[in-house]
């Protein structure tokens, strides 16, 4: 079971909550509590994060999309938060550039890493 909510920007946050009870930090909830106009994520009785506002309220912009949950869970929690942010056309653009030999410098690095 995952907790998923859609954002005003068109992206979404997904939290793989079965991993959450074992998390000692509850970092996602803590960082969210610091955000104005108030938390989106609160701690449920089962030790998993749950939503305070409704999905509709979040979609209308209650979540400030600070990405604190994503980053804090990554280093203090179980790294179970995922952020999907569509950027229409970027992957196709990068593929075209790559085919033409114009590879972004960070992808060049990734290729070197992969080949070793």
């Amino acid at each position: 079971m995952s907790l998923e909510f859609h954002l005003l920007s068109g992206g979404s946050i997904t939290i793989h909550t079965p991993e959450c009870p074992s998390c000692e930090s509850k970092a996602c909830v803590k960082v969210c509590a610091e955000q104005s106009p108030g938390p989106v994520l609160i701690l449920g009785e089962d030790g998993r994060p749950c939503l305070k506002p409704t999905l509709t309220e979040i979609k209308r912009g209650v979540c400030t999309e600070c990405l604190g949950c994503l980053l804090e869970c990554g280093i203090h929690g179980n790294n179970v938060v995922r952020f999907q942010a569509p950027l229409e056309g970027l992957e196709a653009y990068l593929a075209e550039q790559e085919a033409a030999g114009r590879i972004p410098i960070y992808r060049q690095d990734a290729k070197q890493v992969e080949s070793t």
Binding site: L7, S9, G11, T64, E65, C66, L67, G68, F83, A85, L87, L90, Y93, L94, Q97, R102, I103, P104, I105, Y106
Partner: peptide, 20 residues
């Protein structure tokens, strides 16, 4: 801007192949 907006624009900026 929201962090998610910063995330998106940073990916676009870094997609420029020739940058050093």
């Amino acid at each position: 801007p929201s962090a998610s907006k910063m995330y998106r624009i940073t990916k676009v900026i870094l997609a420029q192949p020739q940058i050093q």
